[in-house]
Protein backbone atom coordinates (compact mmCIF):
# COMPACT_ATOMS: atom_id res chain seq x y z
CA UNK A 1 0.00 0.00 0.00
CA UNK A 2 1.37 3.44 -0.86
CA UNK A 3 0.13 6.95 -0.26
CA UNK A 4 -1.12 7.37 -3.83
CA UNK A 5 -3.26 4.26 -3.63
CA UNK A 6 -4.59 5.11 -0.18
CA UNK A 7 -5.44 8.63 -1.39
CA UNK A 8 -7.09 7.06 -4.44
CA UNK A 9 -9.22 4.70 -2.36
CA UNK A 10 -10.21 7.51 0.02
CA UNK A 11 -11.14 9.75 -2.91
CA UNK A 12 -13.21 6.94 -4.38
CA UNK A 13 -14.88 6.42 -1.00
CA UNK A 14 -15.56 10.17 -0.80
CA UNK A 15 -17.29 10.12 -4.19
CA UNK A 16 -19.61 7.36 -2.96
CA UNK A 17 -20.32 9.25 0.27
CA UNK A 18 -21.12 12.44 -1.66
CA UNK A 19 -23.62 10.52 -3.77
CA UNK A 20 -25.21 8.93 -0.68
CA UNK A 21 -25.39 12.39 0.91
CA UNK A 22 -27.14 13.71 -2.18
CA UNK A 23 -29.68 10.88 -2.09
CA UNK A 24 -30.20 11.47 1.63
CA UNK A 25 -30.79 15.17 0.95
CA UNK A 26 -33.44 14.39 -1.64
CA UNK A 27 -35.09 11.85 0.68
CA UNK A 28 -35.15 14.03 3.80
CA UNK A 29 -36.24 17.04 1.83
CA UNK A 30 -39.32 15.41 0.33
CA UNK A 31 -40.35 14.22 3.78
CA UNK A 32 -41.14 17.80 4.84
CA UNK A 33 -44.77 18.81 5.03
CA UNK A 34 -44.09 22.12 3.32
CA UNK A 35 -41.70 22.15 0.32
CA UNK A 36 -38.91 24.53 1.34
CA UNK A 37 -37.36 26.39 -1.59
CA UNK A 38 -34.32 24.09 -1.72
CA UNK A 39 -36.58 21.04 -1.54
CA UNK A 40 -38.75 22.40 -4.26
CA UNK A 41 -35.73 22.96 -6.47
CA UNK A 42 -34.32 19.52 -5.65
CA UNK A 43 -37.55 17.72 -6.36
CA UNK A 44 -38.47 19.65 -9.45
CA UNK A 45 -35.12 19.63 -11.16
CA UNK A 46 -33.57 16.33 -12.05
CA UNK A 47 -30.89 15.11 -9.67
CA UNK A 48 -28.42 15.04 -12.55
CA UNK A 49 -27.37 11.55 -11.54
CA UNK A 50 -27.21 8.98 -14.31
CA UNK A 51 -28.78 5.68 -13.29
CA UNK A 52 -27.00 4.10 -16.27
CA UNK A 53 -23.60 4.99 -14.84
CA UNK A 54 -24.63 3.71 -11.41
CA UNK A 55 -25.75 0.41 -12.91
CA UNK A 56 -22.51 0.11 -14.86
CA UNK A 57 -20.52 0.71 -11.69
CA UNK A 58 -22.52 -1.93 -9.82
CA UNK A 59 -21.63 -4.35 -12.62
CA UNK A 60 -17.97 -3.24 -12.46
CA UNK A 61 -17.76 -4.03 -8.75
CA UNK A 62 -19.70 -7.28 -9.10
CA UNK A 63 -17.28 -8.55 -11.75
CA UNK A 64 -14.18 -7.03 -10.15
CA UNK A 65 -14.69 -8.46 -6.67
CA UNK A 66 -15.58 -12.06 -7.53
CA UNK A 67 -12.68 -13.17 -5.34
CA UNK A 68 -13.87 -11.28 -2.28
CA UNK A 69 -14.58 -14.50 -0.37
CA UNK A 70 -11.96 -16.73 -1.96
CA UNK A 71 -8.76 -14.64 -1.95
CA UNK A 72 -8.34 -12.81 1.35
CA UNK A 73 -5.86 -9.94 0.90
CA UNK A 74 -6.40 -7.73 3.97
CA UNK A 75 -9.15 -6.53 6.26
CA UNK A 76 -8.93 -3.12 4.62
CA UNK A 77 -9.30 -4.67 1.15
CA UNK A 78 -12.32 -6.75 2.13
CA UNK A 79 -14.06 -3.90 3.96
CA UNK A 80 -13.57 -1.48 1.06
CA UNK A 81 -14.90 -4.06 -1.40
CA UNK A 82 -18.00 -4.57 0.73
CA UNK A 83 -18.50 -0.79 0.96
CA UNK A 84 -18.22 -0.32 -2.80
CA UNK A 85 -20.47 -3.30 -3.56
CA UNK A 86 -23.06 -2.31 -0.97
CA UNK A 87 -23.15 1.37 -1.88
CA UNK A 88 -23.29 0.88 -5.65
CA UNK A 89 -26.16 -1.60 -5.47
CA UNK A 90 -28.07 0.43 -2.90
CA UNK A 91 -27.71 3.59 -5.01
CA UNK A 92 -29.15 1.72 -8.00
CA UNK A 93 -31.96 0.47 -5.77
CA UNK A 94 -32.69 3.99 -4.45
CA UNK A 95 -32.87 5.56 -7.91
CA UNK A 96 -34.96 2.68 -9.29
CA UNK A 97 -37.24 1.86 -6.40
CA UNK A 98 -37.32 4.51 -3.71
CA UNK A 99 -40.66 6.27 -3.97
CA UNK A 100 -39.14 9.72 -3.48
CA UNK A 101 -35.61 9.46 -4.87
CA UNK A 102 -36.76 8.05 -8.21
CA UNK A 103 -38.88 11.18 -8.75
CA UNK A 104 -35.68 13.20 -8.97
CA UNK A 105 -34.33 10.90 -11.66
CA UNK A 106 -34.83 12.17 -15.19
CA UNK A 107 -35.02 9.02 -17.33
CA UNK A 108 -35.90 10.99 -20.46
CA UNK A 109 -32.49 12.63 -20.34
CA UNK A 110 -30.53 9.58 -19.20
CA UNK A 111 -30.94 7.73 -22.47
CA UNK A 112 -27.44 6.34 -23.06
CA UNK A 113 -27.72 2.67 -24.08
CA UNK A 114 -25.17 1.25 -21.67
CA UNK A 115 -25.60 -2.09 -23.43
CA UNK A 116 -23.42 -0.59 -26.18
CA UNK A 117 -20.67 -0.29 -23.61
CA UNK A 118 -21.11 -3.66 -21.90
CA UNK A 119 -20.95 -5.81 -25.03
CA UNK A 120 -17.75 -4.36 -26.59
CA UNK A 121 -16.03 -4.49 -23.19
CA UNK A 122 -17.01 -8.14 -22.81
CA UNK A 123 -15.81 -9.01 -26.32
CA UNK A 124 -12.57 -7.13 -25.75
CA UNK A 125 -12.07 -8.94 -22.43
CA UNK A 126 -12.52 -12.26 -24.21
CA UNK A 127 -9.80 -11.30 -26.70
CA UNK A 128 -7.33 -9.29 -24.64
CA UNK A 129 -6.73 -10.67 -21.15
CA UNK A 130 -3.87 -11.96 -19.03
CA UNK A 131 -5.33 -15.47 -18.64
CA UNK A 132 -8.32 -17.00 -20.36
CA UNK A 133 -10.21 -18.09 -17.24
CA UNK A 134 -13.72 -17.18 -16.12
CA UNK A 135 -12.56 -14.99 -13.23
CA UNK A 136 -9.73 -13.36 -15.16
CA UNK A 137 -11.93 -12.52 -18.17
CA UNK A 138 -14.61 -10.98 -15.92
CA UNK A 139 -11.95 -9.11 -13.97
CA UNK A 140 -10.54 -7.72 -17.24
CA UNK A 141 -14.11 -6.92 -18.36
CA UNK A 142 -14.59 -4.91 -15.16
CA UNK A 143 -11.47 -2.86 -15.96
CA UNK A 144 -12.62 -2.06 -19.50
CA UNK A 145 -16.15 -1.31 -18.32
CA UNK A 146 -15.01 0.97 -15.52
CA UNK A 147 -13.00 2.97 -18.05
CA UNK A 148 -16.17 3.89 -19.98
CA UNK A 149 -18.78 3.68 -17.21
CA UNK A 150 -18.75 7.46 -16.67
CA UNK A 151 -19.88 8.24 -20.24
CA UNK A 152 -23.65 8.19 -19.56
CA UNK A 153 -23.07 10.50 -16.59
CA UNK A 154 -20.93 12.96 -18.59
CA UNK A 155 -23.50 13.03 -21.39
CA UNK A 156 -26.29 13.62 -18.86
CA UNK A 157 -24.28 16.50 -17.38
CA UNK A 158 -24.04 18.12 -20.81
CA UNK A 159 -27.83 17.95 -21.06
CA UNK A 160 -28.45 19.14 -17.51
CA UNK A 161 -28.82 22.91 -17.44
CA UNK A 162 -27.57 23.63 -13.95
CA UNK A 163 -25.27 21.02 -12.47
CA UNK A 164 -25.64 21.15 -8.70
CA UNK A 165 -22.55 21.13 -6.54
CA UNK A 166 -22.87 17.62 -5.12
CA UNK A 167 -23.16 16.09 -8.58
CA UNK A 168 -20.13 18.06 -9.79
CA UNK A 169 -18.13 17.02 -6.72
CA UNK A 170 -19.18 13.41 -7.24
CA UNK A 171 -17.90 13.28 -10.83
CA UNK A 172 -14.72 15.14 -9.91
CA UNK A 173 -13.86 12.74 -7.06
CA UNK A 174 -14.65 9.74 -9.26
CA UNK A 175 -12.22 11.00 -11.90
CA UNK A 176 -9.58 12.00 -9.37
CA UNK A 177 -9.45 8.54 -7.76
CA UNK A 178 -8.28 6.85 -10.95
CA UNK A 179 -5.76 9.64 -11.60
CA UNK A 180 -4.29 8.89 -8.15
CA UNK A 181 -4.23 5.21 -9.05
CA UNK A 182 -2.07 6.04 -12.07
CA UNK A 183 0.46 7.63 -9.68
CA UNK A 184 0.20 4.45 -7.58
CA UNK A 185 1.01 2.29 -10.64
CA UNK A 186 4.01 4.46 -11.50
CA UNK A 187 5.23 4.22 -7.90
CA UNK A 188 4.79 0.43 -7.82
CA UNK A 189 6.47 0.04 -11.22
CA UNK A 190 9.62 1.68 -9.84
CA UNK A 191 9.55 0.02 -6.45
CA UNK A 192 8.37 -3.51 -7.14
CA UNK A 193 10.09 -5.95 -9.50
CA UNK A 194 7.91 -7.55 -12.19
CA UNK A 195 5.09 -5.14 -11.51
CA UNK A 196 3.84 -4.68 -15.07
CA UNK A 197 0.10 -4.69 -15.87
CA UNK A 198 -0.55 -3.10 -19.23
CA UNK A 199 -4.27 -3.90 -19.26
CA UNK A 200 -4.85 -2.20 -15.90
CA UNK A 201 -2.65 0.75 -16.82
CA UNK A 202 -4.11 1.45 -20.24
CA UNK A 203 -7.71 1.06 -18.99
CA UNK A 204 -6.96 3.43 -16.11
CA UNK A 205 -5.35 5.94 -18.47
CA UNK A 206 -8.28 5.89 -20.88
CA UNK A 207 -10.67 6.27 -17.94
CA UNK A 208 -8.83 9.31 -16.63
CA UNK A 209 -8.52 10.89 -20.08
CA UNK A 210 -12.31 10.70 -20.49
CA UNK A 211 -12.55 13.11 -17.56
CA UNK A 212 -10.07 15.55 -19.12
CA UNK A 213 -12.65 18.01 -20.45
CA UNK A 214 -14.75 17.71 -17.28
CA UNK A 215 -11.68 18.52 -15.18
CA UNK A 216 -11.02 21.53 -17.40
CA UNK A 217 -14.51 22.96 -16.93
CA UNK A 218 -14.55 21.97 -13.26
CA UNK A 219 -11.33 23.82 -12.45
CA UNK A 220 -12.21 26.84 -14.56
CA UNK A 221 -15.61 27.06 -12.79
CA UNK A 222 -13.73 26.96 -9.47
CA UNK A 223 -11.19 29.56 -10.59
CA UNK A 224 -13.78 31.98 -12.00
CA UNK A 225 -16.13 31.12 -9.16
CA UNK A 226 -19.00 30.46 -11.55
CA UNK A 227 -21.51 27.64 -11.81
CA UNK A 228 -20.14 24.47 -13.43
CA UNK A 229 -21.43 24.19 -17.00
CA UNK A 230 -20.48 21.68 -19.67
CA UNK A 231 -20.85 22.78 -23.33
CA UNK A 232 -23.59 20.77 -25.06
Amino acid sequence: MNIFRLAGDMTHLMSVLVLLLKIHTIKSCAGKSYPCSLCFILLESSSGISLKTQELYALVFATRYLDIFTDFISVYNTIMKLIFLGSSFSIVWYIRRHKIVRRSYDKDQDTFRHFFLVLPCLLLALIINEKFTFKEVLWTFSLYLEAVAILPQLILLQRTRNIDNLTGQYVFLLGAYRALYILNWIYRYFTEPHYVHWITWISGLVQTLLYADFFYYYFSSLKNNVKLKLPA
Binding site: R5, D9, H12, R64, D67, D71, I73, S74, N77, M80, K81, F84, W139, Y181, N184, W185, R188, E192, P193, H194, Y195, H197, T200
Partner: peptide, 10 residues
Protein backbone atom coordinates in the same frame (compact mmCIF):
# COMPACT_ATOMS: atom_id res chain seq x y z
CA UNK B 1 7.03 -14.99 -4.38
CA UNK B 2 3.84 -14.64 -6.41
CA UNK B 3 4.36 -12.03 -9.14
CA UNK B 4 2.99 -8.90 -7.50
CA UNK B 5 -0.41 -8.85 -9.17
CA UNK B 6 -2.62 -5.80 -9.34
CA UNK B 7 -5.37 -7.98 -7.83
CA UNK B 8 -4.43 -6.61 -4.42
CA UNK B 9 -5.90 -3.29 -5.52
CA UNK B 10 -9.53 -2.23 -5.42
Amino acid sequence: KKASSSKDEL
